[in-house]
């Protein structure tokens, strides 16, 4: 029974990782940008929920989700316009640049909200849980999973059914051909940044349901999210889904089985991913066509 409880916890962490990794995998797949400041969009989303709480009251989480999406999305857009776009095609410089911005944003949060963690109170219907013969399904964790699944389905529909999503896939697959087909690639880049950062903001709101909010909230998750991107295959929706849940669940089980397992779980997760990448350096899924051979 404890095993199943652990599965629920792991899957909900996996769901959060997935929301974070989606943005990373799109910005990397489309623009070749490794965005180290992505974690700070999570933080921005979480603090958005914190600020909305006194204004909106007990149901603030529901309001916070769309608002955090917009806030984090606009932050991402500003970052792209002001800084990152001047560094396209220079991945190492982008890495340093976004890392620096990440530190700045953390300090800004520290100055505004203070260094100690703050709490966001979950609405009543998200506290407690459902008992199924000894297996406990905490409502907040179920909510997070539903949220992540909903976001993935929405993204999938966007990419496959909608005009702008189709355009985004075209730019991801062949930027120059998209431009000579009449696609305004810069606009598509901006939109990708907006959506990717917005999803990180949503992840931030989800994290307020299971823990405190602090200036380094994003840092705790960004490395794992990068692991999801690498293991899942760059720019691959399917790979990201599988890798995120596998990572979250593996992590939660090792933490449970070993005393003081938090650090040990990290070791195990890293070892597993290193071993996996030895077998499949390109990640779980890759684009394979005649065109690339």
């Amino acid at each position: 029974m404890a095993t199943l409880n652990q599965l629920v916890i792991g899957a909900s962490i996996g769901a959060v990782l997935l929301l974070i990794a989606l943005g990373l995998t799109f910005t990397f797949g489309q623009m070749g940008v490794i965005n180290m400041a992505h974690g700070e969009f999570i933080m921005a989303g979480a603090y958005t929920a914190y600020l909305l709480q006194p204004l909106v009251g007990t149901q603030s989480v529901l309001v916070a989700l769309p608002v955090a999406f917009a806030v984090a999305g606009v932050l991402g857009l500003i970052l792209e316009r002001l800084a990152i776009r001047h560094f396209y095609g220079r991945p190492l410089d982008t890495l340093l640049l976004t890392w620096g911005i990440s530190l700045i944003l953390q300090q800004v949060a520290r100055d505004i909200f203070g260094a100690p963690n703050v709490q966001v109170r979950a609405p009543g219907w998200l506290t407690g849980g459902l008992d199924l013969g000894g297996v406990r399904l905490p409502y907040n964790r179920v909510f997070i999973m539903v949220l992540a699944v909903g976001c993935v389905v929405a993204i999938w529909l966007y990419l496959t059914r909608m005009r702008h999503g189709r355009r985004m896939r075209a730019v991801m697959q062949n930027r120059q051909l998209a431009a000579v087909s009449g696609v305004a690639t810069e606009r598509v880049d901006q939109l990708t940044f907006f959506i990717g950062s917005g999803l990180a903001g949503v992840a931030g709101v989800a994290l307020t349901l299971i823990g405190p909010v602090g200036p380094t909230l994003g840092t705790n998750y960004i490395v794992d999210a990068f692991l999801v991107v690498v293991a899942g295959g760059l720019g691959q929706l399917r790979g990201a889904v599988i890798a995120a849940f596998a990572l979250g669940i593996l992590n939660s089980f090792v933490e449970f089985w070993v005393d003081n397992g938090a650090s040990f779980a990290k070791v195990v997760v890293f070892a597993v991913i290193i071993a996996f990448l030895q077998l499949r350096p390109q990640g779980m899924f890759v684009v394979r066509t005649r065109a690339l051979s």
């Binding site: 075209a170 697959q173 062949n174 051909l177 998209a178 087909s181 066509t289």
Partner: peptide, 20 residues
């Protein structure tokens, strides 16, 4: 002979038509 390899033939044409 460049295309968008992961898009279908119809989608390849659609992207260009919509962009126009």
């Amino acid at each position: 002979h460049e295309t968008f390899p992961q898009l279908t033939v119809a989608e390849n044409l659609q992207v260009a038509a919509e962009a126009a």
